[in-house]
Design a protein around this nucleic acid. Structure first.
Length: 615
RNA sequence: GCCGGUGUAGCUCAGCGGCAGAGCGCCCGCCUUGUAAGCGGGGGGUCAACGGUUCAAUCCCGUUCACCGGCUCCA
């Protein structure tokens, strides 16, 4: 294939028609900026998932108030239907051109390009270094909108200048743009931080500290239900739960190497307020001081090493819902999805090297079972593998690595799981698999992770006694399914939009007495349901029934049980569902039986009406 | 950490160089209610914190803190 054709090919495979149009819109935006802000220096302006951006250095800071003027100027360019013309310049000519126009970022980009010629695109008055491709003329640009400005480091490097990134979106039709904006509105309504407040799930306090969520009774009920569900499933799958506390000595984390490689993400150590002991060096004092636990592995390894193990016991699966503390950078904290105290559904599996493939497959099954319960069935898998050409980067015997990689691939293949293999993405201690699940709005979240560890077993001198009576070295698998309870809850809140399935709903039924005289019956109903194991409350306020229905509805409580004279008379409840369906009177025993069944099955359904009989 | 934005009652928010506001929630009273807000009254504030400018600062300026949007999806 001739080089120019090959280049065309590379370009055309990398951009869909929509992305191409968005990329062109970015150029039109840059044209407008060049016109409105003389002296603007342009960096890069690619198409992205829902639109495009352009990174620029501008004489002043943009605010959203500037958007209308920029959009108007862009519309003019679109109306003029400027043709996008492509030419190729010798790199020296391009360098001179951009140098002359004081475009240092373009100059830097060209300097990094190996080619003798570079692509140049021009539309109307705007000329840009660009690989393309573009639409034929600016008239082909669809409805667009500027979205937001943000800071972005040049080339993502915090040591380099901070540029202004102007984000926009563009679509082929107005309907698509409207739909996109509607989706953004929907996502906003489902924001777990907003719902967390409205549904009384959790809060934050400056007195406690940033990134440390505090769970209200209803939020803690969710945590409890989620964790005990995973715990039950794990027990069925041969896991044993352990408990290793919240702190460990600095020397433990020095041995595990976290102190050296992970310290930025650890809370500052607890400095004991004491003088050095007789003959104690400052280093020894530090080793003996304490750290909040950022990871469970050193603790679980310590547990493993506290006993002798036979090959017959393996795999040993230690699981723990321990709260870990990580000192995330301030700007990276966000609601429940990025916190400083997090509860991992963590497990460390200690196994013989020949058990890796089988165990990996078992974990994949476990992941699918648990995520499936939450209706998270659409996911993609990324397998992070070593870069085979650079063995120095990886710890340990490379034969073990090669075997591990083929075991992981074989396990995924045998489960019929499609995956993307990312070579060179593996950590120094082992290959790993990450699972990204799509939620109800189609957004991807990284949840489960399964990591092989070929380093710590040796580092901590772990062993088991083999068939031959000799010591052997086990392999470790680190794995988490939800990831962390906090983050997973955040994802679930948005996935469900706060409408938790019956089994997860912190309050499953609100009993609504019509008048004060129905309170005794309401309490009687509540008592009966509670004793059976349902989570119910009575709205005993003196408000009208309408107001109570509204409140329960807004709290997204699955069942509203209205009780008045008729219901008290008939030992019944009048059932209204969160979905706005009014089922009407249902005998209390029937309601109880059916609600318990649906809850026990972890059904996604709120209610089932009996199929018509005798047809 | 860096860039930008925001911070006013429990919540959602208006206001603004000159006495601090609304709706909802809360408390009290009346009403005793039939499937998404009954009526009346009351309490509630260091206007995030600290410093500066000013006769006067919630408002303007600076610093700090917290929150929100971002910080390569590579011409």
């Amino acid at each position: 294939m001739p080089e120019d054709v090959a280049q065309e090919f590379r370009a055309s495979v990398s951009y869909t028609p929509l992305q191409r149009m968005r990329h062109s819109t970015a150029h039109v935006m840059a044209e407008a900026i060049q016109d409105l802000f003389p002296g603007a220096k342009f960096a890069i302006g690619p198409a992205i998932e829902d639109g495009f951006y352009y990174d620029m250095e501008l004489p002043r800071t943009l605010t959203p108030d500037d958007f209308p003027a920029i959009e108007a100027r862009m519309a003019e360019s679109v109306a003029k239907k400027h043709a996008f013309t492509q030419t190729k310049w010798p790199r020296e000519q391009a360098l001179a051109y951009f140098r002359e126009r004081d475009q240092p970022y373009k100059v830097e980009i060209i300097s990094d390009l190996p080619d003798a010629e570079v692509g140049i695109y021009q539309q109307g008055p705007f000329l840009d270094l660009c690989r393309g491709p573009h639409v034929e003329n600016t008239g082909q640009i669809g409805p667009f909108k500027l979205m937001r400005v943000a800071g972005a480091y040049w080339r993502g490097d915090e040591k380099r200048p901070m540029l202004q990134r102007l984000y926009g979106t563009a679509w082929f039709t107005q309907e698509e743009l409207d739909k996109y904006q509607w989706q953004l509105e929907e996502a906003k309504k489902r924001d777990h931080r907003k719902l967390g407040k409205e549904l009384n799930l959790f809060t934050f306090s400056e007195d406690i500290g940033p990134g440390i969520p505090l769970f209200l009774p209803r939020g803690e009920m969710l945590r409890h239900l989620m964790e005990s569900y995973v715990r039950d499933v794990q027990e069925r799958h041969g896991y044993q739960h352990v408990w290793t506390g919240n702190v460990g000595r600095v020397r433990l984390y020095k041995q595990s190497q976290h102190w050296f490689h992970y310290r930025d993400s650890m809370f500052p150590k607890m400095q004991e307020d004491r003088d050095l002991k007789e003959g104690e060096t400052p280093e020894e004092a530090e080793d003996n001081s304490f750290e909040l636990k950022p990871m469970n592995c050193p603790s679980h390894i310590t547990l493993y090493n506290s006993q002798r193990h036979s090959y017959r016991e393996l795999p040993i699966r230690y699981a723990e819902f321990a709260t870990l503390y990580r000192y995330e950078k301030q700007g990276e904290l966000s609601g429940l999805t990025r916190v400083r105290s997090l509860t991992q559904d963590d497990s460390h599996i200690f196994l013989r090297p020949d058990q890796v493939q089988d165990e990996f497959g078992r974990i994949v099954d476990l992941v699918r079972e648990i995520l499936g319960t939450y209706g998270l069935t659409d996911y993609s898998v990324r397998l992070s593998l070593p870069d085979l050409s650079d063995r120095e980067k990886y710890h340990g015997n490379f034969e073990i690595w090669e075997r591990a990689v083929s075991d992981l691939r074989a396990a995924l293949d045998s489960k019929g799981m499609a995956y993307n293999a990312a070579e060179g993405e593996a950590a120094f201690y082992g290959p790993k698999m990450d699972l990204m699940a799509r939620d109800a709005l189609g957004r991807e979240w990284q949840l489960s992770t399964i990591q092989l560890d070929l380093f710590q077993p040796e580092n901590f001198g772990m062993e088991y006694v083999g068939e031959d009576g000799q010591p052997h070295r086990p392999v470790i698998i680190h794995r988490a399914i939800m990831g962390s309870t906090e983050r997973f809850l955040g994802v679930l809140i948005e996935h469900y939009g706060g409408n938790f399935p019956l089994w997860l709903a912190p309050v499953q039924a609100m009993i609504i007495p019509i008048a004060d005289r129905h309170l005794p019956y309401a309490e009687q109903v509540a008592d009966r349901l509670r004793k059976a194991g349902l989570r119910v409350e009575v709205d005993a306020r003196s408000d009208r029934m309408n107001a109570k229905v509204r409140d329960a509805q807004m709290q997204k409580i699955p069942y509203m049980l209205v009780v008045g004279d008729k219901e008290a008379e008939a030992e019944a409840v009048s059932l209204r569902l969160r979905s706005n369906e009014n089922i009407g009177a249902v005998p209390l025993t029937l309601f109880l039986e059916r609600a318990m069944d649906l809850s026990r099955e972890r059904s996604q359904a709120l209610w089932v009406t009996e199929a018509p009989v005798g047809e």
